[in-house]
Write a protein that binds this DNA or RNA. Sequence first.
DNA 1: GGTAGACCTGGACGC
DNA 2: GCGTCCAGGTCTACC
Length: 296
Amino acid sequence: MKWMLKAPSSYSLDAVVQSHGWSQLDPFQILEPSGLSCVIGLSSDVAVRVSVSERKRGLAVSTAARLGSRQRARVEESLSWMLGLDQEFRTFYRAARDEPKLSRIPKEGWGRMLRSATFFEDVVKTILTTNTTWAGTIRMVSRLVNLYGVATAGDDHLKAFPSPERLAAASPDELRKETGLGYRAPYVSALAEGVASGSIDLDAIRESDLPTPELRKLLLSLKGVGPYAAATLLMLLGRYDYLPVDSWALKLVSTEWYDGEPVGKEEVESAFAHWGEWKALAYWFWDWELLKERSG
DNA sequence: GGTAGACCTGGACGC
DNA sequence: GCGTCCAGGTCTACC
């Protein structure tokens, strides 16, 4: 079935898809020539593949299966969250226009970070980006989805990201062996168990209006979530006052301002300190010299 | 509060 | 084909 979804003015689906690596991870799939599809879990045993593409009047949504009104509402709610349809960046854009390294951002509609269907999925994926290569993250996520995800009715190979309950049912040892999560398996297992049992309320974190430092403390209390992962998750929640400093960030800042000399976290922080509540967005969408060098 | 070492996987490299 | 080294954040123990 097909229908249209309203998008904010100056919205760019391409900008959301390309905002970070999430679109390369299962159960997302980048559509050619443009657009995005994802398998969304609707209940413990029902999943549906949803495709979205951009039109002049908004976003065209299509699903392989016919949905009831509740299911359709659920899909719309998920898409609104995933694609940042409720977000706006006017204040950031005003500041970005005066910075040559960011002036393309307002013009091209950058700012929204692609989110997963649930915050649980985002937290797990973020843990799986730590202390590994991007290829490793892709591999771990793919195995998790293929082994524990719910398949769509039409295609056994199309699966949603596993629910907390499904992952909680697997032992940490099984997760470690079957998915290559390594030492991260107990972290994912504990998170899944906590969410499934109700002792960890990720929805409350997602919807919280707590000040960012307090929200960050809650995220840091999750096993496997350190300063880098917490900052990444805060960005996904629309909070940009902490920088996700990893080894890549050190390389970027080193090339940009220090002639390739080694730098630490402090140098990265000080480079973006004046961006205040927008510092992570300024960092993320900065027109880095290192990226220009690499793209030739 | 700061720091060292362990954690785990897979890719690169040398033999 | 095998062994070794290294990269990648977080946790724990220790000072």
